[in-house]
Design a protein around this nucleic acid. Sequence first.
DNA 1: GGCCAAATTTGACTTTTGTCGAGAGCCGTG
DNA 2: CACGGCTCTCGACAAAAGTCAAATTTGGCC
Lengths: 321, 321
Amino acid sequence: MAIRPAEQLIHKAAWLYYAHGLRQDEVATQLNISRASVAMYLRKARETGIVNISTSTQLFTDDVMARKLEDALGLDAVWIAPANAYLADPSTDIAVLAASVFLELVKKGDRIGVAWGRTVYTIADIMSFADLQDVTVVQLCGNLGAPYSYRPDQCTMEIARRLNAKGLNFYAPLVLSTEELAKSLRAEPVIREQLAGIGDCNLALFSVGTVDADSHVVKCGALDPAEMAALRGRGAAGVIAGQIIDVRGEALDCSYNRRVISAELGSLRSIEKRLMVVQEDTKFEPLLAALAGGLCTHLVIGAHMAERLLEQAGEAGKKAS
Amino acid sequence: MAIRPAEQLIHKAAWLYYAHGLRQDEVATQLNISRASVAMYLRKARETGIVNISTSTQLFTDDVMARKLEDALGLDAVWIAPANAYLADPSTDIAVLAASVFLELVKKGDRIGVAWGRTVYTIADIMSFADLQDVTVVQLCGNLGAPYSYRPDQCTMEIARRLNAKGLNFYAPLVLSTEELAKSLRAEPVIREQLAGIGDCNLALFSVGTVDADSHVVKCGALDPAEMAALRGRGAAGVIAGQIIDVRGEALDCSYNRRVISAELGSLRSIEKRLMVVQEDTKFEPLLAALAGGLCTHLVIGAHMAERLLEQAGEAGKKAS
DNA sequence: GGCCAAATTTGACTTTTGTCGAGAGCCGTG
DNA sequence: CACGGCTCTCGACAAAAGTCAAATTTGGCC
C-alpha cells in the first residue's frame, strides 16, 4: 500500500461513516480494507478530532450546566431554573421547579423527611396534589415555640396533605434552654423513636439557611443576633434542619447545636435521595458548606447560582491540579 | 415553568453517552429506564441536534486538484467530492460535503445570504443542526409565486432553523410582470431595506442554474421556454439568485433581469465569503460564467467537474500566454 | 368517571461494532 | 541475506447498539 495511508484513509473512513452514514462493513468494502481496520480508523478519527462529537451548548444552556454541575459536585441530579428576565420573581420559578422535581422523586411506599423554612413552605404551598399510596412524611427537626409563619409542623403536614400521605410530627421544640434538658428529651421514647425513624427515610426535602441576622433561627427567636454573630465568628457557615454547620458541612461544635432537637447530620446523610433547594442568591456560602458536607444528592437552584457554583468548582479544580 | 421530562432525559442520556462515554446499558441504569429507551433517546438527540457530529472537510481541500483549481481560478478555497462510482448518487455526495463545508464556514454573529434552488434546498435538508449564537439568515432573492418544491423562503427558513438562527424572508415575488412595478417595489422601504441588508452579509450560499428549458426559472414559471431560448441567443449563460448572467458573469441586459427582485450582483460580490455549490455536470457553462464574473470565492464541486474545469483553465492559460 | 387514541416503554431479537491475538509486510542492522 | 523489531491488517468472537411488535401508560374527551 501507500507510504502513509493512515491520514488519508482515516479521513475517508470517517467521512463515509459519519457524514454519509454508511455502515462499517460498507466503508470497508469501499476502501478495500477489513472492517476491523475501519473500526480502528474511526477510533483514531475520534481521538485526533477529525470528527467532532459535541453536545449542544447554547440551545440547552441550563441542561448543559446542570450536567456539568452534576459532574463537578458529584451529585446524582441537578435542576436549574432558567433565568427568566421578564419574571419579576425568579425564586417562585425555583420553587415551582423544585415542587415538580420533588413529586417526581416520590414513589409510593416512600418515607420522606421534611425540614422547615420559607423555601420548603413555599414548595409545599405550590405543590400540586398527588395520590400516593403508603407514603409517610416525617418532620426532620423540632418545632419552633414562637408563633412563626413557616413552622416545621406546618411544612410537614401541608406536604403530607398534598401527597395524601401520613404526617409524623415532632412533639418537641427545636431548641431548648439547656443542653441537659435537650439530652433528656432526646432520651424520651417518643422522641428517640422519631429521631431513629429519620434514618429509615429514603427521601429528604430541605433548604439551607444563612447565618446572619436575617436567618430563620434568629427570626424565630431560637438565637439572638448577637449569639449568631458570635457563632459566625466561630465558623458557622449555614443552617440545615435547624442546626448550624461549618464550611466543611459538619455540625459546628457549639452549645446551640447541643440544645437542638433535630435530625443528626449523620442520619440525614444516610437517606438515599436528599433534595436540597436554594432560592436566594445570598445563600451561596451556606450552599457551598452544605455541598462540602455531602448533605444533598439532588439539587435545585437558579441559573445565576448555578453559574457562580460552576465558576467556584472550576477554580477549585484548578487549585487541586 | 413546568419541567419537560422528555427533553431533560434526552439531554441527560446524550450527555452521559457522548460526553462521558458510558455504554447504553450504563446510561439506562443511571436513569432507571430500559436500554431500548436510551437507544431511542439517543436517536432523538442526534435528530434534533442536541448532539452534533461533524467531520473535518480538510481531506477535500488537501486534494492536489483542489489546490490547482484554487490557483487557476483565483479562489479562496475549493472542495472536490471524489467520484465514488459505487455510491448510488454522486450529487448527494456533493451536497453532504457542501453542508459540512458550509457549517465550517459559519461563525457566530454571521449574517448569511441564501439563494434558492434544488441544490441549496438539498443542502439545507441534509445539514446537521448547530446552535450558533446571533446568526441571521437572509433571503437573497424574491419568492416564487407558483407553488414549487424548492421555494426561496423554504431554503432560508430551513437553514435558519438548523443553525438556530434568525431567518429574514423577502416579502416580494422573484419576478414581476412589468419593469415599472419591479422598480416601484424595489423602492418600497421594506424591500429596499432588505436589499441593502444583503451587502452586510459576510457569507453567502448559492448555486448556479442552467439557461435551458430545465432551468428552475422556467420550471417555476418565471420565464417560458421560448423566452429562455431567446435570452440564450442573446448571451445568457447561467442563473444566479434568479438573475440571468452572461458568459462574463455580468447581469444580462434584458427585460427579465429588470423585472427581478433579487440581490444585485454587485452586492453579492461585496460579501466576503461566497460559497457556490454545483452538483450537476450539465452546469459546466453556467459555472464558467459565474467564475468569470468572480461571483464566488469558495467552491464545492464533483471530481468530474473539477477535471473539466482544470482542462479548461489549462487551455485558457495556454491561449493567454 | 370511563373510554379511546397516541405516545412511551419494554423485552426479545437481529444487526452492527469493538477488541484481541495471530499473522503478514516492511526496514534497518548485523 | 537472514533476523528481530515494528507497525499494520485480518479473522473470529464478544459486546454493544438498533429494531420491532406488544404492552403499558398518558392524556384528551365525552
